[in-house]
């Protein structure tokens, strides 16, 4: 339902950015104690790649995303987007959070327009807002307020709000984590379709192994806190993928083993 021909009119620079994470370590100070969360993470992501970060709860995945988004600075190491060091937030790297965090005082249209408005280019670029709302299939809800939307619709608006900026890197922090399982499966397919059309580099944090395998080219398995890269697994399977694929089932078993959950298989 998401891929609609009317939206073909938008022109996107169909190239994602390269993302390099070099020797990044990070820690938090909590009540005087230092809590290390990331330990020497090295990761190089090619333009247009779809990478999933998997790891136990609270291992520091979301912290890594905040560093990529530029919302925080790492204690050591550096992050670079297309060889340019990341020093702060930039609309070329947009985050979709687990909570849609729509602004309740803004209608769907105004929420989606937020990025363009903040950058001061909304007046000339209004058509991009209309197009991306159409793209996520919410044209008839453009004047609705967030409290009138279902969870899946709200998350679609959040996705549209990110996509309207033509991000080179889309950062997804468990964006489907709070949706019911049916909506979730539908939105996974939509996400893959969007990524294939636009070609942005995607970094997805999830703790759902199946979701990682259905969506990503590459799955990075992280250790317990402080997070280190435990495994870097290529998922060489064409899209659309089938959940029952024995190849994916094998990988799933392998990853659950890495996460210390082989007994549940």
């Amino acid at each position: 339902m998401v891929v609609q021909s009317a939206a073909e009119a938008i022109i996107y620079p169909a190239v994602g950015a390269e993302l390099d994470i070099d020797g990044v370590s990070h820690a938090f100070d909590i009540d005087g104690a230092t809590l290390p969360v990331l330990d020497n993470v090295n990761l190089s992501i090619a333009p247009g790649e779809f990478v999933a970060l998997l790891g136990p709860s609270g291992c520091g995945k979301s912290t890594l995303l905040r560093l990529v988004a530029g919302l925080e600075k790492p204690r050591t190491g550096s992050l670079r987007e297309d060889e340019v060091r990341i020093t702060g937030p930039h609309p070329s790297r947009v985050v979709v959070f687990q909570d849609p965090t729509l602004f309740p005082w803004r209608s769907v249209w105004d929420n989606v327009a937020l990025g363009l408005e903040a950058q001061g280019i909304l007046k000339t670029q209004r058509h991009r807002v209309d197009a991306v709302i159409e793209l996520v299939g919410l044209s008839s809800f453009r004047n609705a307020y967030p409290h009138q939307l279902s969870g899946g619709m709200a998350q679609r608006v959040a996705l549209a709000r990110a996509l309207v900026n033509d991000p080179k890197i889309l950062v997804l922090d468990e964006p489907l984590g709070k949706l019911d399982s049916l909506t979730r499966i539908a939105m996974q397919a939509e996400l893959v379709a969007l990524w294939q059309r636009k070609g942005f580099t995607t970094l997805l944090v999830t703790h759902d192994v199946e979701e990682a395998l259905v969506l990503a080219n590459r799955v990075i398995v992280l250790s317990d806190r402080p997070a280190r890269i435990k495994a870097d697994i290529a998922v060489a399977r064409p899209y659309p993928r089938h959940r029952g694929d024995p190849y994916l089932a094998d990988l799933r078993k392998q990853i659950l083993g890495l996460l210390g959950l082989e007994a549940t298989w």
Binding site: G70, L71, H90, R93, V95, T101, L114, A118, Q119, R161
Partner: peptide, 8 residues
Amino acid sequence: DVARTLGA
């Protein structure tokens, strides 16, 4: 956070 990543 949302507004800042969008360029606010």
